[in-house]
Design a protein around this nucleic acid. Structure first.
Lengths: 196, 196
DNA sequence: TTAAACCCTATCTGAATAGTAGGAAAAAGA
DNA sequence: TCTTTTTCCTACTATTCAGATAGGGTTTAA
Protein backbone atom coordinates (compact mmCIF):
# COMPACT_ATOMS: atom_id res chain seq x y z
CA UNK A 1 0.00 0.00 0.00
CA UNK A 2 2.88 2.26 -0.78
CA UNK A 3 3.07 5.84 -1.88
CA UNK A 4 5.93 6.20 -4.35
CA UNK A 5 8.86 8.51 -3.72
CA UNK A 6 7.65 10.52 -6.66
CA UNK A 7 4.28 10.92 -5.04
CA UNK A 8 5.84 11.86 -1.76
CA UNK A 9 8.12 14.41 -3.39
CA UNK A 10 5.27 15.91 -5.36
CA UNK A 11 3.20 16.35 -2.23
CA UNK A 12 6.08 17.79 -0.24
CA UNK A 13 6.83 20.29 -2.98
CA UNK A 14 3.21 21.33 -3.31
CA UNK A 15 2.85 21.70 0.43
CA UNK A 16 5.95 23.89 0.42
CA UNK A 17 4.46 26.05 -2.27
CA UNK A 18 1.39 26.36 -0.10
CA UNK A 19 3.48 27.36 2.87
CA UNK A 20 5.43 29.83 0.77
CA UNK A 21 2.30 31.57 -0.35
CA UNK A 22 0.98 31.68 3.19
CA UNK A 23 4.20 33.38 4.22
CA UNK A 24 4.18 35.91 1.44
CA UNK A 25 6.41 34.35 -1.15
CA UNK A 26 5.24 34.46 -4.73
CA UNK A 27 7.64 32.08 -6.40
CA UNK A 28 9.83 29.27 -5.18
CA UNK A 29 12.61 27.74 -7.21
CA UNK A 30 13.17 24.06 -7.64
CA UNK A 31 16.55 24.21 -5.96
CA UNK A 32 15.02 25.80 -2.90
CA UNK A 33 12.48 23.03 -2.70
CA UNK A 34 15.01 20.28 -3.29
CA UNK A 35 17.39 21.78 -0.75
CA UNK A 36 14.75 22.07 1.92
CA UNK A 37 13.28 18.64 1.37
CA UNK A 38 16.48 16.80 0.47
CA UNK A 39 15.12 15.72 -2.88
CA UNK A 40 17.42 15.17 -5.88
CA UNK A 41 17.08 18.44 -7.76
CA UNK A 42 16.89 17.06 -11.26
CA UNK A 43 14.32 14.51 -10.26
CA UNK A 44 12.16 17.15 -8.63
CA UNK A 45 12.52 19.28 -11.73
CA UNK A 46 10.90 16.52 -13.73
CA UNK A 47 8.13 16.14 -11.22
CA UNK A 48 7.40 19.86 -11.20
CA UNK A 49 7.20 19.68 -14.95
CA UNK A 50 4.49 17.07 -14.72
CA UNK A 51 2.65 18.97 -12.03
CA UNK A 52 2.67 21.96 -14.31
CA UNK A 53 1.30 19.96 -17.22
CA UNK A 54 -1.44 18.69 -14.93
CA UNK A 55 -2.39 22.19 -13.89
CA UNK A 56 -1.36 22.00 -10.25
CA UNK A 57 1.35 24.63 -10.52
CA UNK A 58 2.34 27.51 -12.74
CA UNK A 59 5.92 28.13 -13.75
CA UNK A 60 7.69 31.40 -14.24
CA UNK A 61 10.68 30.95 -16.48
CA UNK A 62 13.91 32.86 -16.55
CA UNK A 63 15.91 34.60 -13.91
CA UNK A 64 14.10 34.97 -10.60
CA UNK A 65 11.56 32.54 -11.89
CA UNK A 66 10.11 29.59 -10.02
CA UNK A 67 6.88 27.83 -9.33
CA UNK A 68 3.67 28.70 -7.58
CA UNK A 69 0.38 26.93 -7.02
CA UNK A 70 -2.01 27.31 -9.91
CA UNK A 71 -5.02 27.40 -7.60
CA UNK A 72 -5.68 28.17 -3.94
CA UNK A 73 -4.26 25.42 -1.75
CA UNK A 74 -7.74 24.79 -0.38
CA UNK A 75 -8.85 23.70 -3.82
CA UNK A 76 -6.25 21.03 -4.33
CA UNK A 77 -7.01 17.81 -2.55
CA UNK A 78 -4.29 15.41 -1.59
CA UNK A 79 -6.25 12.68 -3.33
CA UNK A 80 -6.10 14.48 -6.65
CA UNK A 81 -2.34 14.76 -6.43
CA UNK A 82 -1.83 11.16 -5.40
CA UNK A 83 -4.13 9.91 -8.15
CA UNK A 84 -2.28 11.95 -10.70
CA UNK A 85 1.16 10.79 -9.69
CA UNK A 86 0.55 7.26 -8.44
CA UNK A 87 -2.72 6.23 -10.00
CA UNK A 88 -5.94 5.06 -8.35
CA UNK A 89 -6.25 5.01 -4.57
CA UNK A 90 -8.03 1.66 -4.54
CA UNK A 91 -5.97 -1.36 -3.52
CA UNK A 92 -7.43 -3.40 -6.37
CA UNK A 93 -8.93 -2.36 -9.68
CA UNK A 94 -12.36 -3.80 -9.08
CA UNK A 95 -13.09 -1.30 -6.30
CA UNK A 96 -11.63 1.77 -7.95
CA UNK A 97 -14.01 4.64 -8.62
CA UNK A 98 -11.68 6.59 -10.86
CA UNK A 99 -10.32 3.60 -12.78
CA UNK A 100 -12.54 0.57 -12.37
CA UNK A 101 -11.21 -2.59 -13.87
CA UNK A 102 -12.92 -5.93 -13.88
CA UNK A 103 -10.99 -8.29 -11.71
CA UNK A 104 -10.05 -11.83 -12.59
CA UNK A 105 -12.23 -13.40 -9.95
CA UNK A 106 -15.19 -15.29 -11.36
CA UNK A 107 -17.94 -13.61 -9.38
CA UNK A 108 -17.32 -10.05 -8.33
CA UNK A 109 -20.77 -9.73 -6.90
CA UNK A 110 -20.24 -12.40 -4.29
CA UNK A 111 -16.65 -11.65 -3.45
CA UNK A 112 -16.08 -10.98 0.22
CA UNK A 113 -12.58 -9.77 -0.42
CA UNK A 114 -13.92 -7.15 -2.76
CA UNK A 115 -16.25 -5.82 -0.06
CA UNK A 116 -13.36 -5.55 2.31
CA UNK A 117 -11.16 -3.79 -0.19
CA UNK A 118 -13.98 -1.44 -0.97
CA UNK A 119 -13.99 -0.48 2.68
CA UNK A 120 -10.27 0.11 2.50
CA UNK A 121 -10.50 2.20 -0.62
CA UNK A 122 -13.29 4.24 0.95
CA UNK A 123 -11.25 4.77 4.07
CA UNK A 124 -8.27 5.97 2.06
CA UNK A 125 -10.29 8.15 -0.26
CA UNK A 126 -12.26 9.45 2.70
CA UNK A 127 -9.09 10.94 4.05
CA UNK A 128 -7.16 11.90 0.94
CA UNK A 129 -10.13 13.43 -0.83
CA UNK A 130 -11.24 15.32 2.25
CA UNK A 131 -8.04 17.07 3.08
CA UNK A 132 -6.42 19.66 0.90
CA UNK A 133 -3.00 21.18 0.64
CA UNK A 134 -4.35 24.05 2.73
CA UNK A 135 -5.12 21.69 5.58
CA UNK A 136 -1.65 20.22 5.59
CA UNK A 137 -0.12 23.68 5.32
CA UNK A 138 -2.18 24.82 8.26
CA UNK A 139 -1.20 21.88 10.43
CA UNK A 140 2.45 22.33 9.57
CA UNK A 141 2.49 26.04 10.30
CA UNK A 142 0.60 25.50 13.51
CA UNK A 143 3.17 23.04 14.73
CA UNK A 144 6.06 25.27 13.78
CA UNK A 145 4.54 28.25 15.56
CA UNK A 146 3.72 26.20 18.62
CA UNK A 147 7.39 25.34 18.94
CA UNK A 148 8.49 28.85 18.03
CA UNK A 149 10.46 27.66 15.05
CA UNK A 150 11.30 29.90 12.11
CA UNK A 151 8.88 29.56 9.24
CA UNK A 152 10.36 28.31 6.00
CA UNK A 153 10.51 30.60 2.99
CA UNK A 154 9.83 33.47 5.34
CA UNK A 155 12.34 35.89 3.91
CA UNK A 156 14.60 33.59 2.01
CA UNK A 157 15.70 34.80 -1.37
CA UNK A 158 13.10 37.45 -1.97
CA UNK A 159 13.54 38.65 -5.49
CA UNK A 160 15.54 41.87 -5.27
CA UNK A 161 13.31 44.88 -5.19
CA UNK A 162 10.32 42.79 -4.22
CA UNK A 163 8.91 43.94 -0.95
CA UNK A 164 7.90 40.97 1.15
CA UNK A 165 4.32 41.56 2.07
CA UNK A 166 3.30 40.02 5.33
CA UNK A 167 0.12 38.27 4.50
CA UNK A 168 -1.83 37.53 7.66
CA UNK A 169 -2.47 33.81 7.87
CA UNK A 170 -5.97 33.24 6.68
CA UNK A 171 -8.24 32.24 9.51
CA UNK A 172 -9.67 29.21 7.86
CA UNK A 173 -8.17 28.37 4.55
CA UNK A 174 -11.65 28.98 3.27
CA UNK A 175 -13.68 27.71 0.40
CA UNK A 176 -13.62 23.94 0.07
CA UNK A 177 -17.10 23.14 1.19
CA UNK A 178 -16.90 20.25 3.63
CA UNK A 179 -18.86 17.59 1.89
CA UNK A 180 -18.64 14.52 4.05
CA UNK A 181 -19.45 13.09 7.41
CA UNK A 182 -17.41 13.67 10.56
CA UNK A 183 -14.03 12.04 10.68
CA UNK A 184 -11.75 10.97 13.38
CA UNK A 185 -8.03 11.10 13.09
CA UNK A 186 -5.01 13.07 14.07
CA UNK A 187 -5.53 15.74 11.51
CA UNK A 188 -9.11 16.32 12.41
CA UNK A 189 -8.01 16.92 15.98
CA UNK A 190 -5.60 19.56 14.89
CA UNK A 191 -8.13 21.11 12.55
CA UNK A 192 -11.02 21.25 14.93
CA UNK A 193 -13.29 23.21 12.63
CA UNK A 194 -13.69 19.95 10.78
CA UNK A 195 -15.14 18.00 13.63
CA UNK A 196 -18.65 18.57 12.44
CA UNK B 1 -1.74 2.22 -2.79
CA UNK B 2 -1.86 -1.09 -4.54
CA UNK B 3 -2.22 -4.60 -3.28
CA UNK B 4 -0.05 -6.87 -5.41
CA UNK B 5 -1.48 -9.73 -7.41
CA UNK B 6 0.44 -12.03 -5.15
CA UNK B 7 -1.25 -10.51 -2.12
CA UNK B 8 -4.62 -10.75 -3.78
CA UNK B 9 -4.07 -14.37 -4.75
CA UNK B 10 -2.86 -15.27 -1.28
CA UNK B 11 -5.95 -13.76 0.30
CA UNK B 12 -8.31 -15.38 -2.18
CA UNK B 13 -6.74 -18.76 -1.58
CA UNK B 14 -6.87 -18.40 2.19
CA UNK B 15 -10.46 -17.27 2.05
CA UNK B 16 -11.28 -20.29 -0.06
CA UNK B 17 -9.64 -22.53 2.49
CA UNK B 18 -11.79 -20.88 5.11
CA UNK B 19 -14.90 -21.48 3.05
CA UNK B 20 -13.88 -25.06 2.43
CA UNK B 21 -13.56 -25.75 6.11
CA UNK B 22 -16.88 -24.10 6.81
CA UNK B 23 -18.43 -26.42 4.26
CA UNK B 24 -16.84 -29.54 5.59
CA UNK B 25 -13.84 -29.97 3.39
CA UNK B 26 -10.58 -30.88 5.06
CA UNK B 27 -8.12 -30.34 2.26
CA UNK B 28 -8.13 -28.34 -0.92
CA UNK B 29 -5.65 -28.80 -3.71
CA UNK B 30 -3.81 -26.03 -5.43
CA UNK B 31 -5.39 -26.84 -8.77
CA UNK B 32 -8.86 -26.53 -7.28
CA UNK B 33 -7.98 -23.14 -5.92
CA UNK B 34 -6.35 -21.96 -9.10
CA UNK B 35 -9.26 -23.23 -11.19
CA UNK B 36 -11.85 -21.55 -9.05
CA UNK B 37 -10.05 -18.25 -8.80
CA UNK B 38 -8.46 -18.22 -12.26
CA UNK B 39 -4.98 -17.95 -10.84
CA UNK B 40 -1.98 -19.42 -12.70
CA UNK B 41 -1.50 -22.74 -10.97
CA UNK B 42 2.25 -22.74 -10.73
CA UNK B 43 2.29 -19.23 -9.39
CA UNK B 44 -0.25 -20.09 -6.73
CA UNK B 45 1.77 -23.15 -5.85
CA UNK B 46 4.68 -20.91 -4.99
CA UNK B 47 2.50 -18.63 -2.96
CA UNK B 48 1.03 -21.51 -0.99
CA UNK B 49 4.55 -22.61 -0.28
CA UNK B 50 5.32 -19.28 1.30
CA UNK B 51 2.07 -19.25 3.23
CA UNK B 52 3.02 -22.62 4.59
CA UNK B 53 6.47 -21.42 5.63
CA UNK B 54 4.82 -18.48 7.36
CA UNK B 55 2.51 -20.75 9.29
CA UNK B 56 -0.77 -19.69 7.71
CA UNK B 57 -1.50 -23.06 6.15
CA UNK B 58 -0.56 -26.69 6.57
CA UNK B 59 0.17 -28.92 3.65
CA UNK B 60 -0.62 -32.56 3.21
CA UNK B 61 1.67 -34.13 0.64
CA UNK B 62 1.05 -37.04 -1.64
CA UNK B 63 -2.01 -38.28 -3.42
CA UNK B 64 -5.24 -36.72 -2.18
CA UNK B 65 -3.16 -34.16 -0.38
CA UNK B 66 -3.79 -30.45 -0.32
CA UNK B 67 -3.79 -27.46 1.96
CA UNK B 68 -5.78 -26.38 4.95
CA UNK B 69 -5.64 -23.42 7.29
CA UNK B 70 -3.14 -23.86 10.08
CA UNK B 71 -5.35 -21.97 12.55
CA UNK B 72 -9.02 -21.10 12.86
CA UNK B 73 -9.98 -18.52 10.27
CA UNK B 74 -11.00 -16.17 13.05
CA UNK B 75 -7.43 -16.04 14.24
CA UNK B 76 -5.90 -14.93 10.97
CA UNK B 77 -6.30 -11.24 10.30
CA UNK B 78 -6.24 -9.88 6.81
CA UNK B 79 -3.61 -7.42 7.93
CA UNK B 80 -1.24 -10.19 8.94
CA UNK B 81 -1.52 -11.78 5.53
CA UNK B 82 -1.06 -8.53 3.64
CA UNK B 83 1.93 -7.56 5.76
CA UNK B 84 3.51 -10.92 5.15
CA UNK B 85 3.05 -10.87 1.41
CA UNK B 86 3.27 -7.18 0.56
CA UNK B 87 5.08 -5.60 3.46
CA UNK B 88 3.95 -2.78 5.75
CA UNK B 89 0.50 -1.28 5.43
CA UNK B 90 1.75 2.28 5.88
CA UNK B 91 1.99 4.42 2.75
CA UNK B 92 5.39 5.72 3.84
CA UNK B 93 8.04 4.24 6.09
CA UNK B 94 7.99 7.01 8.67
CA UNK B 95 4.46 6.12 9.78
CA UNK B 96 4.82 2.36 9.77
CA UNK B 97 4.31 0.58 13.08
CA UNK B 98 5.66 -2.75 11.95
CA UNK B 99 8.60 -1.39 9.96
CA UNK B 100 9.35 2.18 10.87
CA UNK B 101 11.96 3.87 8.76
CA UNK B 102 13.22 7.38 9.16
CA UNK B 103 12.16 9.42 6.21
CA UNK B 104 14.32 11.79 4.23
CA UNK B 105 12.45 14.88 5.29
CA UNK B 106 14.44 17.17 7.55
CA UNK B 107 11.95 17.45 10.39
CA UNK B 108 9.64 14.53 10.92
CA UNK B 109 8.15 16.09 14.01
CA UNK B 110 6.74 19.08 12.17
CA UNK B 111 5.73 17.35 8.99
CA UNK B 112 2.09 17.83 8.13
CA UNK B 113 2.26 15.23 5.43
CA UNK B 114 3.42 12.68 7.95
CA UNK B 115 0.39 13.39 10.14
CA UNK B 116 -1.88 12.87 7.20
CA UNK B 117 -0.22 9.65 6.17
CA UNK B 118 -0.42 8.45 9.72
CA UNK B 119 -4.17 8.92 9.53
CA UNK B 120 -4.18 6.92 6.32
CA UNK B 121 -2.10 4.11 7.75
CA UNK B 122 -4.38 4.01 10.82
CA UNK B 123 -7.43 3.85 8.62
CA UNK B 124 -6.02 0.99 6.61
CA UNK B 125 -4.73 -0.92 9.60
CA UNK B 126 -7.98 -0.23 11.43
CA UNK B 127 -9.77 -2.25 8.80
CA UNK B 128 -7.27 -4.90 7.84
CA UNK B 129 -6.24 -5.69 11.40
CA UNK B 130 -9.82 -5.81 12.60
CA UNK B 131 -11.23 -8.24 10.11
CA UNK B 132 -10.20 -11.84 9.85
CA UNK B 133 -10.52 -14.54 7.26
CA UNK B 134 -13.57 -15.72 9.18
CA UNK B 135 -15.29 -12.41 8.63
CA UNK B 136 -14.71 -12.47 4.91
CA UNK B 137 -15.77 -16.09 4.73
CA UNK B 138 -18.94 -15.27 6.56
CA UNK B 139 -19.80 -12.36 4.30
CA UNK B 140 -19.15 -14.42 1.23
CA UNK B 141 -21.25 -17.36 2.37
CA UNK B 142 -24.02 -15.04 3.42
CA UNK B 143 -24.17 -13.47 -0.01
CA UNK B 144 -24.12 -16.81 -1.76
CA UNK B 145 -26.93 -18.16 0.41
CA UNK B 146 -28.98 -15.01 -0.02
CA UNK B 147 -28.89 -15.56 -3.76
CA UNK B 148 -29.41 -19.32 -3.41
CA UNK B 149 -26.17 -20.09 -5.18
CA UNK B 150 -24.31 -23.36 -4.74
CA UNK B 151 -21.54 -23.15 -2.18
CA UNK B 152 -18.06 -23.77 -3.48
CA UNK B 153 -16.16 -26.85 -2.37
CA UNK B 154 -19.43 -28.22 -1.11
CA UNK B 155 -19.02 -31.72 -2.47
CA UNK B 156 -16.35 -31.21 -5.06
CA UNK B 157 -13.70 -33.88 -5.18
CA UNK B 158 -14.17 -35.41 -1.76
CA UNK B 159 -11.41 -37.91 -1.26
CA UNK B 160 -12.91 -41.29 -2.09
CA UNK B 161 -14.14 -43.04 0.96
CA UNK B 162 -14.20 -39.82 2.94
CA UNK B 163 -17.67 -39.12 4.20
CA UNK B 164 -18.45 -35.45 3.88
CA UNK B 165 -19.52 -34.30 7.27
CA UNK B 166 -21.97 -31.47 7.21
CA UNK B 167 -20.57 -29.04 9.69
CA UNK B 168 -23.23 -26.54 10.73
CA UNK B 169 -22.00 -23.05 10.01
CA UNK B 170 -20.72 -21.62 13.22
CA UNK B 171 -22.99 -18.92 14.55
CA UNK B 172 -20.33 -16.32 15.08
CA UNK B 173 -16.93 -17.27 13.89
CA UNK B 174 -16.03 -17.00 17.54
CA UNK B 175 -12.88 -16.09 19.38
CA UNK B 176 -11.16 -13.02 18.04
CA UNK B 177 -11.87 -10.62 20.82
CA UNK B 178 -13.00 -7.36 19.31
CA UNK B 179 -10.39 -4.95 20.47
CA UNK B 180 -11.18 -1.65 18.84
CA UNK B 181 -13.76 1.06 18.57
CA UNK B 182 -16.88 0.90 16.43
CA UNK B 183 -16.37 1.02 12.70
CA UNK B 184 -18.43 2.00 9.80
CA UNK B 185 -18.16 0.38 6.45
CA UNK B 186 -19.80 -2.10 4.19
CA UNK B 187 -18.48 -5.11 6.00
CA UNK B 188 -19.58 -3.91 9.38
CA UNK B 189 -23.09 -3.58 7.98
CA UNK B 190 -23.07 -7.14 6.88
CA UNK B 191 -21.52 -8.33 10.11
CA UNK B 192 -23.80 -6.47 12.46
CA UNK B 193 -22.42 -8.07 15.58
CA UNK B 194 -19.51 -5.75 15.10
CA UNK B 195 -21.43 -2.58 15.31
CA UNK B 196 -20.61 -2.13 18.95
C1' DT C 1 3.99 -49.65 -8.49
C1' DT C 2 2.01 -45.71 -9.99
C1' DA C 3 -0.73 -41.69 -10.09
C1' DA C 4 -1.43 -37.52 -7.91
C1' DA C 5 -0.32 -34.40 -5.02
C1' DC C 6 3.11 -31.06 -2.80
C1' DC C 7 8.23 -29.40 -2.83
C1' DC C 8 12.11 -26.90 -4.58
C1' DT C 9 15.05 -24.15 -7.49
C1' DA C 10 16.00 -21.70 -11.38
C1' DT C 11 14.90 -18.64 -14.97
C1' DC C 12 12.56 -15.05 -17.70
C1' DT C 13 10.25 -10.85 -19.34
C1' DG C 14 8.43 -6.45 -19.07
C1' DA C 15 7.38 -2.69 -16.39
C1' DA C 16 8.12 0.39 -12.86
C1' DT C 17 11.03 3.04 -9.74
C1' DA C 18 14.25 6.30 -8.92
C1' DG C 19 16.97 8.63 -10.66
C1' DT C 20 21.15 11.20 -14.20
C1' DA C 21 22.74 14.01 -17.96
C1' DG C 22 23.01 17.67 -21.05
C1' DG C 23 21.67 21.15 -23.31
C1' DA C 24 17.80 24.65 -25.33
C1' DA C 25 14.85 28.46 -24.45
C1' DA C 26 13.31 32.33 -21.80
C1' DA C 27 13.54 36.28 -18.85
C1' DA C 28 15.75 39.85 -16.08
C1' DG C 29 19.29 42.95 -15.33
C1' DA C 30 23.71 45.20 -16.39
C1' DT D 1 23.34 43.17 -26.38
C1' DC D 2 25.27 39.96 -23.19
C1' DT D 3 25.27 37.31 -19.11
C1' DT D 4 23.13 34.91 -15.57
C1' DT D 5 19.67 32.30 -13.81
C1' DT D 6 15.97 30.00 -14.18
C1' DT D 7 12.60 26.62 -16.36
C1' DC D 8 11.99 23.34 -20.34
C1' DC D 9 12.73 19.19 -22.90
C1' DT D 10 14.48 14.76 -24.21
C1' DA D 11 16.98 10.96 -23.62
C1' DC D 12 19.24 7.52 -21.06
C1' DT D 13 20.33 4.14 -17.25
C1' DA D 14 20.49 1.02 -13.41
C1' DT D 15 18.08 -1.68 -10.35
C1' DT D 16 14.38 -3.85 -8.58
C1' DC D 17 10.06 -6.06 -8.65
C1' DA D 18 5.91 -8.19 -10.42
C1' DG D 19 4.20 -11.86 -12.35
C1' DA D 20 4.85 -15.42 -13.80
C1' DT D 21 6.92 -20.21 -16.31
C1' DA D 22 9.67 -24.57 -16.33
C1' DG D 23 11.17 -28.78 -14.81
C1' DG D 24 12.07 -31.88 -12.19
C1' DG D 25 12.23 -34.19 -6.96
C1' DT D 26 9.76 -36.16 -3.03
C1' DT D 27 5.86 -38.03 -0.63
C1' DT D 28 1.72 -40.53 -0.03
C1' DA D 29 -2.40 -43.48 -0.83
C1' DA D 30 -4.59 -46.79 -3.36
Amino acid sequence: MKLSKKGEYALRALIDLGIAREVGRELVQVTELSDKELIPAKFLEQIMQELKAAGFVIAQRGKFGGYRLARPAAEITIGAVVRFVDGPLAPIGCVSHSAYEKCSCPDEEHCGLRMLMLDVRNAIAGILDRYTLADVVEVTLRKLRRDSLPLPFASARPAPGVRVKRVPVSRRSTSTSRRLAPVEGLLSELLPDYAI
